[in-house]
Amino acid sequence: MKLSREEVLHIALLARVGLTEAEVDRLSEELSKILENFEILQKVDTSGVPPTAQSIDLQNVLSDDKITPSLPQSKVLTNAPQKEGNFFKVRHVLE
């Protein structure tokens, strides 16, 4: 299992994580080594075995259709890096 520089850059784009050239090189090496070690998983016979998403048997937890108090807008916005009025301020999405 070898992860090329191009693959690392592709994953970084999917994850929206900026990387320096040195980080790309290091991650290519480290992730390759980690995945190589995890290849043992491919040897396990899992035919007919269902996947486990979580370990308790709760399913489809529903809540009552009832209005309950939530945080006021002013509180929600207190940590916003940039805001305008009652809104989060974002950069242009559409050019």
Partner: peptide, 22 residues
């Protein structure tokens, strides 16, 4: 977004985000 995450996250967090995204 990319620069926020580049400078905001440390090496191990980036490593795991990359591993998980892969």
């Amino acid at each position: 977004m990319e620069k926020t995450r580049q400078h905001g996250f440390g090496a191990e967090v980036k490593r795991r985000i990359m591993l998980g995204t892969y």
